[in-house]
Simulated assay, not measured.
Amino acid sequence: MKKITQLALALTLIFAASCKDKKETPAAPEMEKETEVVTKTETAVKIKVALESKSNSKVTGNAVFTQEDGKVKMVAVVEGLEPGTHAIHLHEKADCSAADGTSSGGHWNPTGAPHGKWGDAAGYHKGDIGNLEADDKGYATVNMTTDEWCIGCGDETKDILGKAIIIHKDADDFTSQPTGNAGSRVSCGGIIQ
């Protein structure tokens, strides 16, 4: 009986010692390191915007804005367009309530620059994306990446949250002020979270 008690006591001590060793495993410091890496790394932000028909058109689609490493990438896919060239811009307000899309305001131009072609030394609005080409079936895509935009950063000259993406009936001529003579608004989507 004494040997069984001693054996039980020995097993209890071994079990307690092994539990003690497990408690001293450096799990907490590893978690802290992971947290530090996450907080120091810029995280990606992604917003998908549905484009709805305006001005009695059948133009729909979506645009995806992804922010990562200090740059915003926009990919827009549009359908229902007439074949040819159409302007695509960011406008002042994420309000697509008007039947003709005019509730979105004018081009987003936080720096007061003249209307123009994106990247032109003579100047351009921060919303002057440019043109897209619709194929013979009415489909068009546009890809753009810039460090001149951000998503939710609070910088009034860069933040695209609260703006609208607009597809126009006609091409942007890049010179007519202030709209590029792009015609009516055939699709609108608000950039909101």
Results as ranks from 00 to 15, higher is better:
Ile129Ala: 12
Thr41Gln: 13
Asp135Cys: 12
Asp100Met: 05
Lys126Cys: 03
Gly127Cys: 05
Gly123Arg: 03
Gly119Val: 00
Asn131Met: 14
Gly127Ala: 01
Asp100Glu: 07
Phe65Ile: 05
Ala113Tyr: 02
Lys40Cys: 06
Ile47Gln: 10
Thr43Val: 12
Thr111Glu: 09
Ala63Ser: 15
Lys73His: 10
Ile88Gly: 03
Ala98Phe: 01
Ser55Glu: 12
Val38Met: 12
Gly116Asn: 05
Asn62Leu: 06
Ile129Asp: 12
Trp118Ser: 10
Ala98Met: 01
Ile88Val: 15
Val64Phe: 11
Gly84Leu: 03
Ile47Trp: 01
His86Trp: 09
Lys40Ser: 15
Ala121Pro: 04
Ile88Met: 07
Lys93Asn: 10
Val38Arg: 15
Gly119Pro: 01
Thr102Asp: 07
Thr60Pro: 09
Tyr124Thr: 08
Gly130Asp: 07
Pro114Leu: 04
Pro110Val: 01
Leu51His: 06
Glu92Ala: 13
Asp69Gly: 10
Ala50Leu: 09
Asp100His: 02
His107Asp: 11
Ser103Leu: 00
His89Leu: 09
Asp136His: 06
Glu92Pro: 02
Thr41Asn: 07
Pro83Tyr: 06
Asn109Gln: 05
Val49Thr: 10
Ser57Phe: 09
Thr41Asp: 01
Glu42Ala: 14
Leu81Ile: 08
Tyr139Ala: 13
His107Tyr: 08
Ile47Cys: 03
Ser53Gly: 10
Glu79Lys: 15
Asp100Trp: 02
His115Leu: 10
Gly112His: 02
Gly105Ala: 03
Leu132Cys: 03
Val37Ser: 14
Asn109Tyr: 08
Lys46Thr: 15
Val72Leu: 07
Gly70Phe: 01
Ser57Asp: 08
Ser55Trp: 07
Gln67Val: 00
Val72Cys: 04
Leu81Asp: 12
Ala50Phe: 04
Phe65Cys: 03
Ser97Trp: 02
Thr102Glu: 09
Glu36Asp: 15
Val37Phe: 14
Gly138Phe: 08
Ser97Ile: 04
Ser103Lys: 00
Gly123Phe: 03
Gly138Met: 12
Gly101Trp: 06
Leu132Tyr: 00
Leu51Met: 14
Val72His: 02
Lys58Ile: 06
Thr111Arg: 10
